[in-house]
Amino acid sequence: MARWGMVIDLDRCTACQACVVACQVENNVAPSNAGQAEAGRAISWLRLVPIQGERRGTRPDLQLIPLPCMHCSHPPCIKVCPVQATKIDHEGLVSQVYSRCIGCRYCTTACPYTVRHFNWKKPEWPAPMEETLSPDVSVRPRGVVEKCSFCHHRLQRAKDKAQAEGRPLKEGDYLPACAESCPAEAIVFGDLDDPRSAVVRLSQSPRAFKLLEELGTEPKVTYLSKGEWGGQV
């Protein structure tokens, strides 16, 4: 069985935000307005977050890092969920079942990466955008928590296609929208249990580090950088 993980190469990333837009469109995330953003209520499954680093030559001391859900192997969020609306599945994906969520927001507080978002209001799209929503991702109602799913609806489709063709899933069949859209190929996605996969090779790089590793959450998102960012979100 696969264990899905991601590698984000910060030395390749140009902070263009194509991944941010791709994610938003793919997952029916409604655009937020300035007021919501100011109140800290803007929803974005994948954000660019500024991290302070050290200055080295011409390199700027501020690094913008793409921040999706880490899909931790020991997710703090699932421990606090009183109704098991968020769980970790057999392939390592941390799921959120919206119809099960009661909106208590313990998980948004527990998540050290601040990637969980509460729907403070009903999502709204400017016309005619609501006609372009993806049927593969349910639209979340007001009052539930949502977060990056590693586009697991794409895994459902990929498995269905592979099974129908009578073959096993192969590398590249299942890619989240962010990885697919990155023009710099800075986001790599695959099976961490497959020794031949690119994610395994890259995460063994000396440039590899994880965010807030000291918490023991064991993120399945690995970053690559020559700089010393130390993971202070």
């Binding site: 769980k87 599945d89 057999h90 392939e91 994906l93 079942v97 119809s99 349910s138 697991h152």
Partner: peptide, 9 residues
Amino acid sequence: STDCTACHR
């Protein structure tokens, strides 16, 4: 599979 992720999206 009875993982939530198998059926829910």
